[in-house]
Each structure stands twice: as structure tokens, then as C-alpha cells.
Design a protein around this nucleic acid. Structure first.
Length: 496
RNA sequence: GGCCCCAUGGUCAAGCGGUUAAGACACCGCCCUUUCACGGCGGGAACAGGGGUUCGAAUCCCCUUGGGGUCACCA
């Protein structure tokens, strides 16, 4: 079936501000965004903070920041405004109250005085008997006397929506096709307003989606079972419901829905940000998690994603989050950016150790350093790790390097190098190339016999990136120090 | 347990009745390179099982098995 009229499509991402934006939420937001943009419609950010107890300070602001960082911009909504505001549930309480009254007038809701303990006990019994769990509806017809007794006890009622025993609900899911819920699968009369007077999510979301003219609701699969209740509400109000599309879950290492407590993988966007991942890499990776453009291409631009996106190509099965592939993809994006472009992002990982570099132009030095290493890391935070021998002021000597240095021939080469390096003035990569050539002709050594001892002496390693550039980055002072130290150390050991 | 969803390599996935069953990540090998990394080339690796439908099923239907979601005064 058609995914919707292209004009006037309106989608929203409606998180509850209870924590950090995680990869699942970011992907849901992304799919909504891509769908809206593909159809030339609007994407809206709404905050569903109806659970006062779980709301976390600054969480909503953080969601917004991270969404923007990812490049998922909304056309109207929280922190932006628009014609359908306010976009935060707790600022819409009066709106909900009006609609509660509307339902009361229609006679489809009633007060329920059951306590949470009583309800829990009822559920347990049903579960134990192997029955479907559903509210018995015992408060449907309270006598005035019973009601008075409950009020006298100080009980605060919830408001429940009456679900007809023979009313089934069906809808066509854009991703999964036809869905049918029989009455017993709906769970009986459900709460729409909590005893503290705040509506529950299922109620608020219906009112909000209708008032904000939401045309498509794209959300996680865990919401499938909420859908019939919401549809019943739309029906009771006499409203046309939006079209639904439920995307598959992102699975943790255990194959289950990602839990915020699952530490087997990094799942919060701000952590990726912290580690030096690029937003376009995460954007690209997330878009491909559960959706595919169909061809062989996996690296696409934002415009290409928007142009190609459609719910018809969203997968129906859950997907494991492959951190290794994300790392590869981030590395890919890192390679496509110049060192100078990366400097602002990499700065905080490098600058703390700038004092040891002994250079006048720190920024220029960092750009050269980034250029030397950026093609081999998967995220910026790895830069100081892979380049630790150049960035730190002291390098430990590894066993194989020590072995290479414990050799008369090698020490002889280093002696020549040290001699020439003292008076060498051109400490650029080209200058280093010339220096090495000079040493080669004087010492009569070339290839491995020349490069290995020098590399081992100045980095303590046998392996590493281009030697000329490494030497230039280290600079004369540090090269002389390390060389002198290596030669001295070799002198203290019996040569083989 | 009730209701609902899902099922192609280790992972992401193409495939939508006829293919030698793509591609990517990861892994292994070779090449390039003073070394490492990058890159290039190549390799191993999959249709959960059983019934149908059909001339012909990874593709359609049913069952089994397996996995998952949900059953709140949370979203």
C-alpha cells in the first residue's frame, strides 16, 4: 500500500526525558526524520514527560543537543516552537484535562479505586492460572456507598477507559502489514489518568498526535501492543488515527532488547561523541541498521538517504548492533576528512600533552600528527594511543627493539646519525629524508640496517608510520635526547 | 502462561517463483611497503526443520522448533 500522501506528511520523535539518547532512540528519530524529509513533510520533536518520577533534569536538553549533533533537525517542536505547541507534555496539562472531560461526557471513562497492590495481586493470580492478564473491571459499577467508603479511606482514583468486551482492533502496519487484536489481547479497561491527575503516555500521545496533525507514527516494535489501546482512544474521540509503522528492535549481545544497563556495548550517543566518532558515521550506520537502500552501496550522503528512504525497505527482524562495523565506518569517514578539518575535534585528545612537544606552533604540529595517524584509527580518541611514542615525552623500549639496538653495527649507525643530527638544521620530513641519506652514505648501511636502528632508538618500536615524518614531528631536541640515551644504553650491555 | 512479532554466513544484509544465493564488517592468505598501518587481490562461511502449492521454491501456504516483544497509576 502507499506509504502516504507526499504533501503534508508530519512525523514526530517523542522521547521521555528519562536518560541519555541511546542508539535505538536515535535510530527511531532518524527514521522519522528521513521519512518526513523524503516526503517533503515535517519532523517534530516532542517531549513526553508525563512520568514525573522518572524525569531527569537536563535530559530533554541533552536529547535535543545530541539529535542536532547527529544532524537530525526538527522543523518544529521543543526548543524551537511552532504552531502546535507547547511541545512538552507537562505544559499541556490543561489540554489533556479538557479532553478527559470530553471522554467523561461520552461516558467511556470511570473512576477506579483499586490500589496498586490489589491490582498486582490480581495480575499474579491470572498469570498463575495461565489466563490472559487483564483488569477485571470491578470498579466499573461502584455503588455510591462503596465509592464513599473508598474516598473516606483517602484513596485517590485513577481514570480508566472502558474497553468493550467484543471490540477488536485492527490496523495496517506500514512495516508489518495487517495486525489484528482480539478484545482479550487488549488487556481490559486501561488507565488514562493516574491518581496524581497526570495522564498516562497512552492518553497524552493520542491527544498530542491528533492535535499536532501527526500523519505517521514510526516507533519501536515494543509499542505494538500499545497501538490497539491508542486506536481505541482515537475511535472514542472520533478522530482519524495516524498510520503506524513499527521498526524492529536493536538487540544487545544477549539477543534481547537493549537494556540501558547493558554494558556489552556503547549505546549512548554522547559516549560516541566523547570517543571522537563523527556524526555522519553514526548517521550512516544507524540508517543502515534495519533499513537498506537495496543496492551494494553502504556509504551514502544525507541527501541520498533522504532521497532513497522508505518504510517498505525496513527489515522486520531485530538487528544486533555491530560495533566493529561502526568502527570501520567511522574510520572511513575519518579518512575522507583532512587533518586540518579534524583538528578542532581531535584537539582535546592531544593538547593536554603539548608541553612535551617543544614546538612553537602547536596547531601545525597537531595537524601533521593527525595526518600521520588518522588513516589507521577508528575514532579520534585512539590518536594519542596509536601515536603515544611521538606524543609522550618518554618512550619505553619494547623487547624486539631493544634486541635490534643491542648490536655493534646498529650502534655504529646511530653514532653517525647522532653526529649528523646535532648540526642538522632542516627538521622537515624532506630534511629528514636527506639526513637519512647522508647517514646512509657515511655509515654504509641502508634499508633495514639503517631504518630499524633509527626507529628503534627514537620510538622504542620496530614498527610505526613513516619514519621521516615521525622524526620531523619529534624534533631535534627530542631526537637527540632519545638517540643519546639509546647509544648510552647499548654501551652498558655486552654486544652480541 | 495469554496476545503479538520475527527467522538467508559470526554480524549487517541483497533476493520478492527459475541466480554459480550479491555486497559490506569481522576472520584467513597473498601483494604493496624499510616496518606498521592504509590500500589492492583472493579465500572459507548461510536459506532452522517438516509438510504442502507449483514444471520449478530462499522466495507462496501450513505445522514444528527457535528467538524476541508485551501484558504498569513506565514510556
Amino acid at each position: 500500500m502507499d506509504e502516504g500522501e507526499s504533501m503534508g506528511v508530519r512525523l514526530r520523535y517523542a522521547p521521555s526525558p528519562t536518560g541519555h539518547l541511546h542508539i535505538g532512540g536515535a535510530r527511531t528519530a532518524l527514521f522519522n526524520y528521513l521519512f518526513a524529509k523524503h516526503h517533503g513533510g515535517s519532523f517534530i520533536l516532542r517531549i513526553e514527560d508525563t512520568d514525573l518520577d522518572r524525569n531527569v533534569d537536563n535530559a530533554a536538553q541533552e536529547f535535543a543537543d545530541n539529535l542536532r549533533w547527529l544532524g537530525i533537525e526538527w522543523d518544529e517542536g521543543a526548543y524551537l516552537g511552532g504552531d502546535c505547541g507547547p511541545y512538552v507534555s507537562t505544559e499541556r496539562l490543561d489540554i489533556y484535562a479538557r479532553h478527559v472531560e470530553e471522554l467523561r461526557d461520552k461516558g467511556v471513562i470511570y473512576e477506579c479505586y483499586c490500589s496498586e497492590d490489589e491490582l498486582a495481586a490480581e495480575r499474579e493470580q491470572q498469570m498463575a492460572r495461565g489466563e490472559a492478564v487483564r483488569y477485571s473491571g470491578r470498579c466499573r459499577r461502584l455503588t455510591d456507598k462503596e465509592r464513599a467508603a473508598h474516598i473516606h479511606e483517602g484513596r485517590k482514583p485513577t481514570l480508566r477507559f472502558r474497553v468493550a468486551d467484543d471490540e477488536s482492533v485492527e490496523f495496517t502496519d506500514l512495516i508489518r502489514g495487517d495486525m489484528i487484536f482480539e478484545p482479550q489481547g487488549i488487556g481490559g479497561d486501561f488507565v488514562v489518568v493516574k491518581s496524581n491527575g497526570i495522564p498516562v503516555y497512552n492518553f497524552a500521545v493520542v491527544v498530542d498526535d491528533h492535535l499536532m496533525n501527526i500523519t505517521h507514527v514510526v516507533r519501536g516494535e515494543e509499542h505494538i501492543s500499545n497501538t490497539p489501546r491508542q486506536l481505541l482512544l482515537f475511535r472514542a474521540f472520533g478522530w482519524t488515527a495516524p498510520v503506524f509503522g513499527h521498526v524492529p528492535l536493536i538487540l544487545g549481545a544477549d539477543g534481547k532488547k537493549l537494556s540501558k544497563r547493558d554494558e556489552s556495548l556503547i549505546q549512548f550517543i554522547d559516549q560516541y561523541r566523547e570517543y571522537g566518532y563523527l556524526p555522519e558515521a553514526i548517521f550512516n550506520f544507524l540508517a543502515l541498521l534495519g533499513w537498506t537502500p537495496g543496492g551494494e552501496r553502504e556509504i551514502l550522503t544525507r541527501e541520498e538517504f533522504i532521497a532513497n528512504f522508505g518504510l517498505d525497505r525496513v527489515n522486520r527482524s531485530g538487528a544486533y548492533f555491530d560495533a566493529a562495523k561502526l568502527a570501520w565506518m567511522n574510520g572511513h569517514y575519518l579518512k575522507s576528512r583532512s587533518a586540518a578539518e579534524l583538528l578542532p575535534l581531535a584537539r582535546r585528545f592531544l593538547e593536554p600533552s603539548a608541553a612535551g612537544w617543544q614546538v612553537a606552533d602547536v596547531d601545525a604540529w597537531m595537524i601533521d600528527f593527525i595526518a600521520l595517524y588518522k588513516d589507521q584509527v577508528s575514532c579520534l580518541s585512539e590518536l594519542p594511543v596509536v601515536g603515544n611514542v611521538l606524543i609522550g615525552d618518554e618512550a619505553t623500549v619494547e623487547a624486539d627493539a631493544a634486541e635490534t639496538l643491542n648490536d655493534d653495527q646498529a650502534v655504529a649507525v646511530l653514532g653517525v646519525f647522532l653526529e649528523r643530527a646535532r648540526s642538522w638544521t632542516d627538521w622537515t620530513p624532506d630534511g629528514m629524508k636527506a639526513l637519512l641519506k647522508d647517514v646512509q652514505s657515511i655509515a654504509g648501511k641502508k634499508g633495514k640496517d639503517l631504518f630499524f636502528p633509527v626507529r628503534a632508538a627514537i620510538t622504542g618500536r620496530l614498527h610505526g608510520p613513516d619514519l621521516n615524518r615521525s622524526l620531523a614531528l619529534l624534533g631535534q631536541t627530542r631526537v637527540l635526547e632519545r638517540l643519546g640515551r639509546a647509544v648510552a644504553a647499548a654501551g652498558e650491555q655486552p654486544a652480541t
